[in-house]
Design a protein around this nucleic acid. Structure first.
Length: 800
DNA sequence: GCGTAACTAGTTTTT
DNA sequence: CTAGTTACGC
């Protein structure tokens, strides 16, 4: 794609721009009173940037690839570039298309641009569809916005809805059962994954069918068009459709493409290494005219290959654009020298990379704290102990600590300890708020109100709370729908329900009681529909929760779980209120879209103090003073599934690199000797990545020495320096004072006699003091007791 | 059609 | 282990 034929675009030269070697042109239109500055623009704000950043922010000579290492001020660079284009080249902010990876990043960028430009310079407060509104958002939000306007041509009316994973599954299951295929033999998830992958590659149903190579693919080829058709009927798009349909639109509608190319004088893309083929084509289509494409990425941080991200988009940018300018940002402003040394050493083991080495002027800082725990629970205890030491002992805010893990399942052990010690925390991910059953139930009503064709939502809403509507009744309602649609045009399932409720149609098998129920249902929907545009969304949420009976049913249930569901529903009303308050567009449509496109990370609270827990994937783009990377074990991190894939381990290593480079001041790397997963406890090997961390950067804080890391050369595993006395176990204390115990060892207690150590933990750790060691010891007659290590002696020690 | 019991399977990462 | 699905009896 890419390479537009249009050379340079040129109309006139820009003078007074030192970093414009290409002599590129700015043929900006001047709109709405915004003028090209006649006097030399004030460039002093660029003084905040280092030379490379400055170059990246101001180069306008054509395609630009910025290889921005972790913590190299990438966001700052993009923001300044945006400001530069507006302030110095006189572009209208609405002429710039900026794409970020998450809504949070978009918001941040918007805020920062706003600050740089000063108040009132940015449009977009009010109607986001207005001319001149800002275009800073995610791929999905951008495409959605384009499709709302011009989607008719690809089968989407402007009130289309976005289906999430569970909606997709519900829809596909219906299709599968319609085909009579056994769900157990042909799970919906498999089809959805295949279809999603195809869409990432812009492969539509026909093309897929043509290329189907084996039995499985032929099955997919059969389902794919039916699925697309069903989406169209429901006036719905799934995540991948948002991108694919936009590309189709741009390819097929020249006028639309021309208009957008004309409009977006400059295109900026963040996290370019995580774009998939469809996104790549989208970006390059738009940029092909003016060729003012600036992409920013880091091949070492590409961690989304599993969802179609193609690292080649970065690696081959220079092939796509032979005249591309490449700028590397390698100075890191985030981490200590020690953290960077370790992270560089790990990532150096990857082969597929452009090759880049971060450096910093920051201090060497503390060594990396390495800890081997007895098991997952003890790992959590250590981590929380360290956090409490830093929080209580040194007054560090809790939110300066982040616990990063490979899989969500690992969060539980940490939550247990945090709850137990009453430490506030916030966990990002897991089941998202908007994907919770009760939330989706409420939203289903609102979705029907917004788009009556959304039958996935309609069926869901019909079923909650229970209204005695099963497959049989549903079939009858469908029949009724067909009966009326013959007479009065396409009425859809909702039309059928309305006909039955009003007695227009009276199918056998639907009694008066059910009819009344349906009447109330339709009345609720209609009342809400009448309020669209006037009634605030919060009000609608309240209406649904009260009139539908959802909350009533939960209240009668009376269990703790039901109670928490009610609270979640209440929270939804609050969320809606906040949304209306903050958003440019308080409409129902915008609210629903927001709910569909919202990522977990987007709702991270900045204000509250609390330890932050999340997966490494979620941590991308963030930084924390103190970072714990936990569960560094073979099979967990790197994950077992990755070991089978060709470039799997390299991606895991990048993930590890991302995790390590989140740390600003102190990094902890932990693993456990054994790990309990779905009920089974298994011995766990240390992660291969641990061995790639240079030993001289490590401080070993565990009672249990890791064979791999320590026994290799115990002397060198000692700390290099401790510039700031921290929360970790003090070297001197570990080295001398504490006799090392390990599970399985026999010990003697003065009163209870001989026992076996089954667990070890530590508390009260503070600088200069290793803390108290607690042992869990199984005694013959006392059962398992927790006792201070001082109370026992090792059997065989001291000649006993 | 609903509720309970029993069972199962599936467990990476997410816009 | 546990959440989510299925089978069965009412």
């Amino acid at each position: 794609m890419g390479g537009g034929k249009r050379p340079g675009g040129g109309k006139g030269k820009v003078s007074g721009n030192p970093s414009d070697p290409g002599g590129r042109t700015i043929d900006h239109r001047t709109r709405k009173g915004r003028q090209t500055p006649d006097t030399a623009p004030d460039l002093s704000f660029l003084d905040d940037l280092n030379p490379e950043q400055r170059e990246a922010a101001t180069y306008t000579g054509g395609p630009l690839l910025v290889l921005a290492g972790a913590g190299s001020g990438k966001t700052r660079c993009l923001t300044y570039r945006f400001a530069y284009l507006v302030r110095c080249l006189g572009l209208d902010p609405g002429d710039i298309l900026a794409i970020t990876f998450t809504n949070k990043a978009a918001r941040e960028m918007r805020d920062r641009v706003e600050r740089l430009l000063g108040d009132g310079r940015l449009p977009g407060r009010g109607d986001p569809h207005a001319e001149g509104a800002l275009w800073v958002s995610t791929f999905h939000a951008t495409c959605s916005r384009l499709l709302r306007r011009d989607g008719e041509r690809v089968g989407l009316r402007s009130n289309f809805v976005i289906y999430d994973a569970s909606d997709q599954t519900a829809l596909l299951k219906e299709i599968l059962s319609g085909l009579g295929w056994e769900e157990s033999r042909w799970p919906a998830a498999g089809f959805l994954a295949a279809i999603s992958r195809a869409k990432d590659e812009l492969v539509g149903p026909e093309e897929f069918a043509a290329g189907a190579a084996d039995f499985r693919e032929e099955r997919v080829a059969k389902v794919y068009p039916l699925y697309q058709e069903a989406l169209r009927r429901n006036n719905a798009a799934d995540f991948d459709d948002l991108i694919m349909k936009t590309v189709i639109l741009l390819r097929e509608e020249e006028a639309v493409l021309a208009r957008l190319r004309e409009r977006f004088r400059h295109v900026l893309v963040d996290e370019y290494q995580d774009t998939n083929h469809a996104q790549y084509v989208f970006v390059n289509l738009l940029a092909a005219g003016h060729r003012n494409l600036c992409v920013v990425g880091d091949d070492d941080q590409s961690i989304y290959a599993w969802r179609g991200a193609d690292i080649r988009n970065v690696l081959e940018f220079e092939k796509d654009y032979p005249d591309a300018r490449v700028i590397r940002l390698e100075q890191n402003y985030r981490s200590t020298k020690t953290i960077l040394t370790a992270a560089n050493a790990v990532i150096a083991n990857n082969e597929r990379r452009t090759g880049k080495k971060l450096w910093t002027e920051n201090e060497a800082g503390d060594p990396i704290v390495y800890y081997l725990a007895a098991d997952g629970a003890e790992e959590a205890q250590f981590v929380v102990g360290e956090i409490l030491g830093g929080h209580g002992g040194r007054g560090l805010p809790l939110r300066s600590f982040a616990i990063l893990y490979r899989t969500h399942a690992q969060s539980r052990a940490f939550e247990d300890v945090l709850v137990n010690k009453a430490v506030p925390y916030q966990i990002i991910g897991g089941t998202r708020f908007y994907e919770r059953k009760e939330i989706k139930d409420v939203l289903a009503y609102l979705r029907v109100v917004h788009n009556p064709e959304d039958e996935v939502a309609l069926e869901r809403a019909l079923g909650v709370p229970k209204r005695s509507i099963g497959p049989a009744t549903l079939a009858r309602l469908r029949q009724a729908a067909e009966a009326v649609s013959g007479a009065a045009g396409a009425a859809g399932l909702l039309g059928g329900i309305r006909a039955v409720a009003t007695g227009h149609v009276d199918p056998a098998g639907i009694g008066p009681k059910l009819r009344g129920e349906l009447g109330r249902f339709v009345a609720l929907i209609d009342a809400l529909a009448a309020g669209v545009g006037t009634m605030p969304v919060t009000e609608m949420v309240r209406e649904v929760t009260e009139k539908s009976g959802l909350v009533e049913v939960l209240r009668r249930e009376g269990t703790a779980e039901a109670q928490s569901r009610i609270e979640n529903i209440r929270e939804l009303a609050t969320v809606a209120a906040n949304y209306a308050h903050q958003s440019d567009d308080p409409s129902l449509q915008a609210f629903l879209e927001n709910a569909a496109l919202m990522a977990d990370i987007d709702v991270m609270k900045e204000g509250d103090d609390g330890v932050v827990l999340m997966t490494v994937h979620n941590a991308k783009g963030l930084e924390f003073p103190h970072v714990f990377v936990v569960g560094l074990e073979q099979g967990l991190f790197p994950h077992s599934r990755s070991l089978e894939e060709p470039h799997g381990v390299e991606e895991e290593r990048r993930l590890c690199y991302v995790a390590m480079t989140r740390g600003m001041r102190r990094l902890y790397l932990t693993h456990a000797r054994e790990r309990t997963l779905y009920g089974y406890t298994m011995p766990a090997e240390p992660s291969a990545f641990l061995q790639e961390v240079p030993e001289e950067t490590l401080f070993v804080a565990s009672l249990l020495a890791s064979r791999r890391v320590v026994e290799r050369d115990p002397e060198r595993a000692r700390p290099v320096a401790r510039t700031a006395p921290g929360t970790a176990v003090h070297p001197a204390a570990t080295a001398s004072a504490t006799p090392r115990f390990s599970p399985g060892e026999r010990v003697i207690h003065p009163r209870w006699g001989e026992g076996i150590i089954v667990g070890i933990s530590r508390s009260g750790v503070r600088p200069g003091y290793a803390g108290n060691v607690h042992l869990r010891v199984a005694f013959a007659n006392q059962g398992v007791q927790t006792i201070a290590a001082e109370e026992v002696t090792r059997k065989g020690a001291l000649g006993v």
